[in-house]
Design a protein around this nucleic acid. Sequence first.
DNA 1: TCTAATCTCTTCTTTAAGGAAGAGAAATCT
DNA 2: AGATTTCTCTTCCTTAAAGAAGAGATTAGA
Lengths: 151, 151
Amino acid sequence: MSTPESRTDAGAVYRRYLSAVMLHGHASAKACDLGATDLYALNLLELEGPMTPGVLGARAGLTTGPTTRMIDRLEEAGYVRRVPSPDDRRKVIVEPIGKPVRLDEVMTPAREEIGKILRGYSPEQLDVLFDYFTRAAEAYRQAVDDLRATS
Amino acid sequence: MSTPESRTDAGAVYRRYLSAVMLHGHASAKACDLGATDLYALNLLELEGPMTPGVLGARAGLTTGPTTRMIDRLEEAGYVRRVPSPDDRRKVIVEPIGKPVRLDEVMTPAREEIGKILRGYSPEQLDVLFDYFTRAAEAYRQAVDDLRATS
DNA sequence: TCTAATCTCTTCTTTAAGGAAGAGAAATCT
DNA sequence: AGATTTCTCTTCCTTAAAGAAGAGATTAGA
């Protein structure tokens, strides 16, 4: 925590933490035969809620053809469902399905471990952690928007 | 934070946070034309340090052919470097290069935002956060190993 | 020493995902 | 009402990444 070269340097700790999170996400997805784009879309839906194929495809950086097929894959695998839009019959709404699927199953062990870790903290400490989770999520969400705007 | 259906439910907050992290990682990689597997390998190297192509490929779930080409791509893009193994002249060691490349550049805005957030906490609160980062990284690392063992 | 095993890399083939163009249905606008 | 725009989806083509098989170099073992 002192010298820049130190193995416990704060920046390094944080980078390693992020790498671990990414790695676990990827590994879980791979274990479920979920491609990178599919996972990306799934995360988008989790984070921003149901949206139309058009929006989802645009966010994922896809043209309409691949978007349709990506949603097909997610739907067949049971992650999402297409529902007709109530106000515009051309539109479709893609919404994540709450019911447990393969991905949740695969992620369960890690979630339990994290749960164990979190239960080791006092309520005050948990407040700090969840405050951070909330703020960081918003920061990352914003950063993704900025990235989209740039490119 | 009270009812299970609540929008601020702890589990939901955490899932949304993870989604945001994954999403940002993916978006950053995409902005640098880094494929999913390449990003995966890069995270592996960041987390576990230098390793041989054989190990890296196995960890990434690739056969030897694609492994070589993946390392070629990472090397050309300046993320890693191949160095000969000192004790076995058949082997090569792939190590991440510390110098800033496109990916770091793209991730800078988010890092600064996160830095700002972190600077808002007291030293005691930061201890809690970094304690969590360290433990969680280890938990995720372990979970990835378990996933590999299972499949 | 000489054979077998190990490690990386090359080449060829296959597959999965994405782009382009356009069709069909429904909404919007004049 | 008729024309135009907006959505989603389909089809065909292209491309990027992965598998398979094997070569070349080096180490380990009989």
